[in-house]
Design a protein around this nucleic acid. Structure first.
Lengths: 352, 352
DNA sequence: CTGTTAGCGCCTTCAA
DNA sequence: TTGAAGGCGCTAACAG
C-alpha cells in the first residue's frame, strides 16, 4: 500500500526550495513569501501530499491520540459516554482509541504499558474495574500511569488516587427515587440488583437503604451481581416467589434500566398490571426507557454531558497542569408511567 | 507529563551496551547472549523503560492503528459491530480509532486526508454515507483512500468501488419475514420505514415488496427516512389514521428494531392487543428485542460476526494483497411472540 | 554475539 | 525570508 509516498524532501526538491520552507508553508508559518508559498503549494497539491503525522508527533512529543478505557461499548451507558467524548476530542483535533477492559479485569502493568508505549496524550477511564471495591493495586497502577499522561475518571472517586474525576451522585439519585415512590403511597419497596462489587452500584444501594431507613421503612433487598435484562427476569422470580402475594413489595427500584427491561418482562409474564399492581423505577435513562411498557420512570445520569466534560478536562489538563478535582451532580428524576404517578391519587395505593 | 522519559540510548549507556543490543532484547531478537540480555533487562526494569512505539512505527512504516468509520456508536447495531471489531483488532496487537461520520455527511477529501496523515494501517467503513444511493464522488474518494491503506466495508457493495465487502442480505431477510407472516395467515402487511436513501434500507424495502408481489399481495408502504423509536410512533399514527380499522393491515414489518420500539408503544397506546390485533416484526435483533412486550420477532443480521470478520480481513489484506471480494449471508429469522406465531392456529387470523 | 552507522519523515534552531 | 544542520527515539543493515 501507499506505494511511493512522497516525503517533504521530494516536495522541496521539486519546488526548488528547502524542506524547512515546505514545512513552514504546511504549518502556516507566517514568515514565507506569498510567491514561495504558492510555488510550494502547487507541488503539494500536485501530489496531494500529506505530511506524516507520526513523524511530526515524534518530534513534538505528542500523538494527538487519547485513550478511552471501558468495559463494554455495547452497553448503552458506555456508548453514550464514548460517543460524546469522541466528538469533543475530534473538535480539538484529537482521535480516540478504545481500550476494552473487561468488567472484572484488573488494570495490569502490561495494560498500562500499552498506553504508555503508544504515547497517548491522555486517558479517560470509565466503569469496570475502576469501580471495584476490592483491595487492589489500582491506585498504584494509575498513579504510575499518571506520571506519563493525564488521567480523568468518570466514577466515584478512587480512594488513594488523585486525578480529575467526574460523576453523578447515584446515592442522591436513589434517595430521590425512593422519596418519589413514598410520596406516591408506596411503603414496601424492594431494591433489585444490590451489589457491593462496584462503587457506583454500591452507591445506588446505599442511597436506597439510607432513604428507606430515613423514612422509617424496611429496605427489601434482592442482590444480584450481574445487571442484564435476563438477570432482571430471574431476580423478580426469586423475589416474588419468596413471599405470598399479600406480602409482596408494591414497588421495585431496579439498579439500572437495562436490568429493568427484564423486570418488566417478567412482571408482564406473571400477569401483573403495571403500574397498578406493581410500580417499577430504573436508573440511567437509556434511549429505550421511554419506550418500555409502561414507559420507565428513571434517573438521568448525564452520560453524554459527563463524557464531553471529562474529555474537555483531559485536554485541558495537558496544557495547564491543573490540580485534580472532583465534580459531581445529582441525577434528575424522569417521571414516566411505570411508577404510577399518573394514576388517580384519590384511590390510594394499598398500604403495608 | 512524562517528565524525564528515558530513551533506548540511556538504557544502553547504563547497561554498557549499544542501543542496537537493547533494541534486540526488547524485541526478543534471538541473537543475544543470555548474560547480556539479563544485564540489559535489569536496567530496563529499573527504569520501567517503555520503548516509544511511535518512533518504531516511523521506521517500520506502520502505526498498528486501524480506523473505524461509522455514523453513530450509540446505535446498538453500530456498537455491536464496533465492539467485535475492536476485540478482533486487539487480539492482533492493533488499536482502533473511531471516526464518526454523520449519517448524511459525505466523506470529504479532508476527512480522507485525516486518515492518511495518521498513517492508519487500514480502515473499516460501516453505515452512513457509505450507503447513500445518491450520485456522489464516493467511489472516487474511497478509491483514492485505498491507494494508501486497505479498506473493508460492511454494507451492500458500493458500485464503482472494488474492496473487501461483507454484509447481510437484508432483501432475503425481509422476504423470509414476509413469508413467515403470510404463513401465519396475514394478507394485509405494511412496511414501516421505507426509504431509498440508503442502500441497506432500500434493500429491506425491496425484499419486502418483492415477496409481497410474489405472493400476490399488495404492499402497503409507510415511508420514513428516520428510523428512531419516536418516528415509529408517528409512523403508526399516520398509517392507521389513513384508513378505517376494518381496512387496517393485520401485520407490520418495521425497518428495524429501534423503530419498532416506538411502533409497539404507539400500538399499546391505541389500546390494541399484540399480537392478536396486530402482529409486528422488526429487523436487527438488538439486545432489547427479546424484552419488548410482546418480545419482538426479528432478523439476526450478524452484527458482531461481521464486525469481527471484517476486521480479520482488513488485517489480512495488509500482508497478502488479497483480491477484493464480497461475502454475504442471509439473516436468520428469530421467532418470538410479536408475530403471533404462538397463537392458536385453529382460530385463523381475520383475512382481507 | 555485538557495535557502528545510517536513516524513518519531520521540525526547529541558527545563520545567512 | 530562506537554507543548512541536527535530532526526535528507534531499528536494520552491515561489519567485526
Amino acid at each position: 500500500m501507499a506505494a511511493e509516498t512522497k516525503t517533504i524532501l521530494d516536495i522541496a526538491r521539486e519546488a526548488g526550495v528547502s524542506p524547512a520552507t515546505v514545512s513552514r508553508v504546511l504549518s502556516g508559518h507566517p514568515n514565507v513569501s506569498a510567491k514561495t508559498s504558492a510555488k510550494v503549494q502547487t507541488v503539494v497539491d500536485k501530489y496531494r501530499f500529506k505530511p506524516n503525522s507520526i513523524a511530526r508527533g515524534l518530534l513534538q512529543k505528542h500523538s494527538k491520540a487519547l485513550g478511552i478505557i471501558m468495559p463494554d461499548i455495547k452497553h448503552p451507558y458506555y456508548a453514550s459516554v464514548f460517543s460524546a467524548a469522541q466528538e469533543e476530542a475530534r473538535r480539538h483535533g484529537y482521535v480516540v482509541q478504545l481500550y476494552r477492559l473487561a468488567y472484572n479485569a484488573m488494570i495490569t502493568d502490561d495494560f498500562a504499558n500499552q498506553l504508555i508505549e503508544r504515547r497517548l496524550d491522555g486517558v479517560m477511564l470509565c466503569g469496570g474495574f475502576i469501580e471495584s471495591t476490592g483491595l487492589s493495586g489500582l491506585p498504584a497502577v494509575l498513579t504510575r500511569l499518571q506520571q506519563y499522561m493525564p488521567i480523568v475518571t468518570i466514577c466515584p472517586p478512587i480512594p488513594g488516587l488523585s486525578c480529575i474525576n467526574i460523576y453523578a451522585d447515584l446515592a442522591a439519585g436513589l434517595r430521590k427515587l425512593v422519596r418519589h415512590l413514598y410520596n406516591l403511597g408506596h411503603r414496601r419497596i424492594a431494591f433489585i440488583g444490590a451489589t457491593a462489587e462496584t462503587r457506583s452500584m454500591g452507591e445506588r444501594e446505599q442511597g436506597f437503604t439510607d432513604e428507606m431507613l430515613h423514612l422509617g421503612l424496611d429496605p427489601i433487598m434482592q442482590p444480584e451481581n450481574i445487571h442484564t435484562p435476563a438477570m432482571g427476569e430471574q431476580a423478580v422470580l426469586k423475589l416474588l416467589s419468596a413471599a405470598p402475594p399479600a406480602e409482596w413489595p408494591t414497588a421495585l427500584a431496579v439498579v439500572n434500566d437495562l436490568m429493568a427491561l427484564g423486570v418488566l418482562r417478567q412482571l408482564h409474564a406473571m400477569g401483573l398490571r403495571l403500574p397498578e399492581d406493581m410500580a417499577v423505577v430504573g436508573c440511567d435513562n437509556q434511549f429505550f426507557s421511554a419506550f418500555t411498557s409502561p414507559p420507565l420512570t428513571t434517573l438521568d445520569v448525564y452520560s453524554e454531558e459527563h463524557g464531553a466534560a471529562a474529555m474537555r478536562q483531559l485536554l485541558q489538563a495537558q496544557e495547564t497542569h491543573a490540580a485534580p478535582f472532583t465534580q459531581t451532580r445529582d441525577p434528575t428524576l424522569i417521571v414516566r408511567e411505570s411508577c404510577g404517578a399518573q394514576l388517580d391519587r384519590r384511590t390510594p395505593h394499598p398500604q403495608a
